[in-house]
């Protein structure tokens, strides 16, 4: 559990972070979004003391981080940055084994852990382990960066625009992989991103920052449907806001009794997927089926359109 309490950071005249309080529960993932220069990175880095706050404090697992030696604290907290930031003179294997070595793990344990992580991230250890960073693609470097952050089995992972440098296809894959990894390892994740879609996809909750202040925090659906301030509204306002909202809901929420013709949609599909299916096949309703193919009812175009509209005040 991470608690950020009334935290501020000033650089001379500018307040990079101003009086921010936030809590992140065990196993939760929080996405921090906001315009450029709004203080996202600064806030994130106070958690592992890459930045020392001017006021306020950060508590991790009940312990005020300012009472822990920075290097010891950081060995317990994974950190991934934009562009991976691999050590250019070290192989992928050596990069990943950095923190375990600092912790003086036994050699066989290090080897097993690195191999496990490379495999988990879809990189063959024998092929990729001995490669230097310049022999890896951007996406591969990023995965090695994630593996390095996870090597010492941290329970908290901090990520500063981890996928910002990747092209859209690689990025989408990386997001799916991260979500799976998180489930599997039960990680607590704090993720900084520019990309609202990424925030909605990876964050259980989203925190919106603007000029050092925390404007709003809440589930993606709350942020999209009820922006608290004009700044948040501006951030989430865009032509495809309805589709983002629909992408967050599942067909289960809108199933109603009845019958309809044509191909069924799965009850676990997103509302966005169901709307797409109806639009494409020019239907007003589609049958809904469960995981075993059993009929559960129908979903209608009318309700889908309502679900994508701005909530009534």
């Amino acid at each position: 559990m991470i608690a950020i309490e009334r935290l501020s950071k000033r650089y001379g005249e500018t307040a990079a972070v101003a009086d921010v309080s936030l809590e992140i529960a065990e196993g939760e993932s929080l996405a921090i979004v906001g315009s450029s220069g709004s203080g996202k990175s600064t806030l994130l880095k106070t958690i592992n003391r890459l930045v020392e706050p001017s006021a306020g404090r950060v508590v991790v697992d009940g312990e005020d981080v300012s009472t822990v030696a920075p290097h010891l604290l950081r060995r317990r907290i994974g950190y991934v940055m934009q562009g991976a930031g691999l050590f250019p003179h070290r192989t992928a294997f050596e990069n990943i084994s950095t923190t375990p070595r600092l912790l003086r793990w036994e050699e066989p344990r290090i080897r097993a852990r690195v191999d496990e992580l490379l495999t988990l991230l879809g990189l063959d250890p024998a092929t990729y382990g001995p490669r230097k960073p310049h022999e890896l693609s951007g996406g591969e470097q990023q995965r090695v960066g994630v593996a390095r952050a996870l090597a010492a089995e941290p329970r908290v992972l901090l990520m500063d625009e981890p996928f910002g440098a990747l092209d859209p296809a690689v990025r989408a894959k990386a997001q799916v992989d991260l979500a799976a990894l998180r489930k599997r390892l039960g990680l607590t994740i704090v993720l900084v991103t520019h990309d609202m879609d990424e925030a909605a996809r990876l964050g259980d909750r989203i925190a919106v920052m603007h000029r050092g202040r925390l404007l709003q925090q809440g589930t993606p659906a709350e942020i999209f449907s009820r922006p608290a301030t004009p700044e948040v509204a501006a951030l989430v306002a865009s032509d495809d806001r309805p589709f983002r909202l629909l992408a967050l809901g599942s067909v289960r929420d809108l199933v109603e009794p009845g019958s309809a013709a044509g191909d069924p949609v799965a009850v676990e599909a997103t509302l966005r997927g169901a709307l797409g299916a109806l639009l494409w096949s020019r239907r007003d309703a589609a049958p809904v089926v469960g995981a075993g193919g059993e009929a559960l009812g129908i979903v209608t175009l009318k309700r889908l359109i309502e679900a994508g509209a701005e909530p009534k005040a």
């Binding site: 010891l72 950081r74 940055m81 930031g85 050590f87 923190t99 600092l102």
Partner: peptide
């Protein structure tokens, strides 16, 4: 490279 130095710190060096 600044990145590498930040990574070194963040890794717990």
């Amino acid at each position: 490279p600044r990145d590498a130095v930040e990574a070194a710190r963040a890794s717990g060096m």
